[in-house]
Each structure stands twice: as C-alpha cells, then as structure tokens.
Nucleic acid binder design. Structure first.
Lengths: 191, 191
DNA sequence: GGCCAACGATAACATTTGTTATCAAATACA
DNA sequence: TGTATTTGATAACAAATGTTATCGTTGGCC
C-alpha cells in the first residue's frame, strides 16, 4: 500500500516502519459507516480496495457529494482540520479494504518530516487531492444542466459510472433516479 | 477609508503614508468594468461607496456569483493569486468610489509587515472575508430550492435585496427573472 | 435452487421552471 | 419636461424535472 513512497525519500527503515505502524488495516463490508453525521472526524482513511461515498442528509433525502476509489484518501476535511462536527457521512458502497490513521499520529508524522519538504508537500497534496474536484463539482451545479453533468461524469470519472449504483449517481448529480434513467435512455436513442 | 487601521498598530507616520500612497482612488459610473474576462487580475479593489458584482458568461447568459458593498475588497481571487486569466468579470452596478492597489505593492506591504503578524493576518483575513460565503452559496445550489435560496438571501444579505436590480439577483439565484417575480408574488400572497 | 431485497426502466401524471410577449412603472438624462 | 431606457409584473405556453406506481432483472444469501 505504501510502497509508492518507499525508496523515494531518505528515511531510514526504523523511522519508516514506525510510521507504517500508525496505519491500521480493516476489511469491511458494503454499507459500513466510517464516519457518522455530527461526529468529529479523527481518522483519515485510505482505500486499498473498494469504494466510498460521502453524503449528507438533506430533508430526509441523501445527497451524495463525493465518490472515492482505490488509493484515494478520504476524510471530512472541515471536520478533520478544524474539529467541527462532521456535516457528512462517510460510507462504503463496496466490500472494502481500508487503512486508517489517527489525526494525532498523522500530525506527529507531518511535524517530523518537516525537514523533507518534498515528501511533506506530496503527502499533503495527496490528502487533499480531491478538494479541487469537489469545488468543480459545485460550480457545475450552477453552470451545467443535469445532462451535461452526466456527460462530464462519463468523460472525467468513468469509474463512477461503471462501479457506482445508479441511484447514488442520481443523488450525486442532484436529480431523481427516474430522471437519470430518462437521460440515459435519451442519450442512447437520440444519438 | 483606512482610518480603521490607523492607531491600532505600531507603524510610524512615514511608513503609514508610504503605504497609503500605494492606493489609488477613482470615481466611476455604473457598469464600469474593473476586470475583463480572460484578463490577469493585478489589482485589488476596495469599495468606499457603491456596489460591485462579479459574474461570468455561461453560454451567452450572465451568471452572477458575488455581490460586494462598502468596505469590502474585491478581486478575482484565483487570478490574483495564481496569475491565471480571470474566469470572471468584475463590474460596478452603482456609481462607485473605489480604491485600488497593485498586486506588486500589496505583496511588498504584506512582506514588510511580517513583523506585525496581527496586522498581516487581519489584512489577509479582510481580503478573503467573502470566500467562505462564496462556498456557502455554492452548497446552497445543491441543498436548497430557489425559494429557499431567496429567503436565505433576504435573511442573510438584505442589502442585496434592497440595492441590487432584480435581474442580477435572479442571475445570482440561478433562475429566470420571470421565476423570481413569481416567487416574490407567491411569498406575498400565500403568506 | 429458491426467495427476498436491491436495482433499474418505464409510464402517467403533477409540479417546477424557462421562454416569449406585453404592459406598466420607475429612472436617467438630454 | 419629455422621451428613451431600465426595471419589474404577469399571462400563456413549452420544457424540464419530480413523484408514484408497476414490472422485470439481477444478485446475495439461506
């Protein structure tokens, strides 16, 4: 899981393994909740295998805001950073293998590797990689029609189309499942 | 304009006035464009009097993303920070009195006052004050109906309702002017 | 293998929202 | 002051989207 970082930076074996020890590996089934709404996020998750969605409850309907797959890291960023109660739920949508690290340990590691800024930056970058996409997704709600959002998704994140059940995709696009079905059928027939 | 900062921090008169000199005061009519789409933002604007809207062209329609009033500062943040071409237009919607400072001068000042971190932080905070609201506005597109967005606006930014022409408000809410009219009339009659 | 739940398509109807056109009121300005 | 422009309301119609219900398919699980 972490081999991509090994050998790239001057860290001796002891230190490396002390870092690795901070990570915990769990195997969990579909629909396992990793972070509840209202809970303060203290763990960062990294996906070895499987798929996670992040969503919140909006007047009884779930509204999916993000999907994550293998090698991506997941947290309720605001909650994790600022110790707010999380507005969102983090939940698996496939049987998954997840690594997690406690915020305290992560902070310690980040503090310790200050001397190797490239590694530190690369780590931080990896952790918040998806934040930019997240923003883009928001803007697309303002700019684009549902059909356009769906086409963007096909183009930019085909994994989502392939692996995620359609009703979660509908919730991500902000439309009803029926309407998503209609859009798909229109795309097949008219084109 | 800048008196709110004077006397609060230990800066001698010479230095203070050298800073003030970096700011330029202009009086401009309604519909003056302060930053064009595609231009690289090099000026930060502060409003002494008047009102500014930020918008972009989306398939021929303008889509307003933010409004600014007295004592707020305005820039196309991404463009200003990273020297990207600006995706947005910055334009007055009232006859206005604006102060502006060039990015180079601002950077110089921020560099110089590093020794007074409180002032530096307060300045930076002031500059990016509206970014958080901006985010909130995006989320509300996903969570709320147009009626709800309008009610939120009445509650949280009554100035916008009072001072901004209705078609700009509609464009900010992401609906047609006709629909905004309908919403208003529904609110008056049903309630 | 059989059953139950999850998933997805589709139809019928309701509601929301956009479009176009028209008119009245307010405002700017020559 | 008079006229043109901007602004806002409303009606009539069209398009987009939601809701509810039904049905067939798939897949997990005992």
């Amino acid at each position: 899981m972490f081999d991509q970082f090994r050998n790239k930076f001057p860290i001796d074996d002891e230190r490396w393994s002390s870092y690795i020890k901070c990570f915990n590996r769990i195997e969990i089934p579909t629909k396992t909740v990793l972070l509840e709404e209202g809970e303060i996020s203290k763990k960062l998750f990294i996906i070895e295998k499987g798929c996670i969605r992040v969503w919140f409850n909006n007047n009884g309907k779930d509204l999916t805001t993000q999907f994550f797959f293998e090698n991506q890291s997941v947290a309720s960023i605001e909650s994790f950073m600022k110790k707010f109660p999380s507005p969102v739920v983090i939940e698996t949508i496939e049987p998954s293998i997840i690594w997690w690290i406690h915020k305290d340990d992560l902070d310690k590691i980040l503090e310790e590797i200050k001397e190797i800024p490239e590694l530190r930056d690369r780590l931080i970058n990896m952790l918040f990689e998806r934040t930019f996409d997240y923003m883009k997704h928001f803007v697309s709600f303002i700019k684009d029609s549902p059909i356009q959002r769906y086409l963007n998704l096909i183009k930019e994140r085909p994994q989502v189309i392939q692996r995620v059940p359609q009703h979660y995709i509908a919730s991500y696009l902000g439309i009803s499942t029926v309407h998503l079905s209609r859009i798909k059928s229109k795309l097949v027939h008219n084109k």
